[in-house]
Simulated assay, not measured.
Amino acid sequence: MKAERIESSLQRRVWSFNRRAETVERQIVLLTDGAAEAETGQERLGMQAPALLWAGDLQPGRLIVEAGSTGFRGHVGNALLVDAIGEQAESVDLRYLVDRDFVLSLAGQAERTAVVSRCFEGILSELRQPQEGSPLLLSALLRIVLVTMMRLSGAHEISLVGAGEKAGLLQRFRQLVEMNFRSHWSIATYADALGISTDRLHAICTTGIGKTPKALVSERLAHEAALRLDRSAMTIQQIGHSLGFADPAHFSVFFRRMTGTAPGAYRRERALARQHGITAPSTSFTDWP
């Protein structure tokens, strides 16, 4: 993550973003005074302080800040965003939120404005002087900002209610998977927790996403395994155990079946890619898992 303070200026300022494929990231702006506008894709998002802007669709654009305006701006890489979103039930609502562009008014929200401002101050401080545990602290501060956005936007109600009963059940299934995929629940157990039959759960998933419940759970597990192989210092056996595999061989067979690559080979490929400055492919949280 990178961030900077928007200082008051006598002239309008313009920042471009996501112009180069290798630097595509999500953008965030907290405007504490003045006015601004973000142009992303074909959309224009106006801001009147106090307000929060999130540009999550990864399209090229620019931020135009009027003279005299103040606040903070930053851009968030995928790895930090994954950490900040986490693995709780509410994480699904955050995933729903972060691939979208929107502006949230903070008028009449003095306490929330202060919280987000303090988070930005903490982020700037940590970026200036990184210390042991800096990535963990940055993800925690970003999570506070994301949850604040979720509460302001009503993303939970939108994601559960906006598209009707089937969409709500699908969202609840995703939440249950997020909490229990490491426990290797059976599809029947998920269906029982939702109060529906396995046949209905299968129909909801295949109609809504085009994948079976089993495929969704397996892909979520494989996605987590890939993240840990890429970014964790744990051994392959430890990673397998942390994901509910008692036998390392079973974990290796599962990962190879899902990705076409053995865990050890995947880890070596990612290490070599990092040496050449190649980051992991960006993930769209809308298309979970």
Rank of each mutant, 00 (worst) to 15 (best):
residue 140 A to C: 05
residue 158 I to Y: 07
residue 168 G to H: 08
residue 128 R to F: 05
residue 140 A to P: 06
residue 152 L to D: 05
residue 159 S to P: 01
residue 114 A to T: 04
residue 123 I to D: 06
residue 179 M to S: 02
residue 131 Q to H: 12
residue 121 E to M: 04
residue 120 F to Q: 00
residue 154 G to Q: 07
residue 163 A to N: 08
residue 139 S to G: 10
residue 174 R to F: 08
residue 181 F to A: 00
residue 174 R to E: 10
residue 131 Q to Y: 10
residue 137 L to H: 07
residue 132 E to V: 11
residue 112 R to C: 00
residue 179 M to Y: 00
residue 127 L to F: 13
residue 154 G to S: 09
residue 172 R to L: 15
residue 112 R to E: 04
residue 153 S to H: 11
residue 166 K to A: 15
residue 142 L to Q: 10
residue 165 E to I: 12
residue 137 L to K: 12
residue 118 R to P: 03
residue 137 L to R: 14
residue 128 R to Y: 02
residue 150 M to W: 01
residue 151 R to V: 06
residue 144 I to H: 06
residue 119 C to M: 02
residue 130 P to I: 12
residue 129 Q to L: 13
residue 164 G to S: 11
residue 141 L to I: 08
residue 141 L to A: 11
residue 118 R to K: 11
residue 148 T to D: 07
residue 172 R to D: 04
residue 161 V to T: 08
residue 131 Q to G: 15
residue 142 L to D: 15
residue 120 F to C: 02
residue 175 Q to P: 12
residue 176 L to K: 01
residue 161 V to R: 06
residue 123 I to K: 09
residue 141 L to D: 08
residue 176 L to V: 00
residue 181 F to R: 00
residue 120 F to E: 01
residue 146 L to I: 09
residue 155 A to D: 07
residue 181 F to M: 03
residue 174 R to H: 11
residue 140 A to V: 07
residue 114 A to K: 05
residue 154 G to C: 07
residue 160 L to Q: 13
residue 173 F to A: 06
residue 167 A to C: 05
residue 173 F to P: 07
residue 171 Q to C: 05
residue 179 M to V: 09
residue 117 S to L: 01
residue 151 R to T: 03
residue 147 V to R: 13
residue 150 M to Q: 12
residue 175 Q to L: 04
residue 133 G to W: 12
residue 125 S to Q: 14
residue 126 E to V: 05
residue 125 S to F: 09
residue 129 Q to F: 12
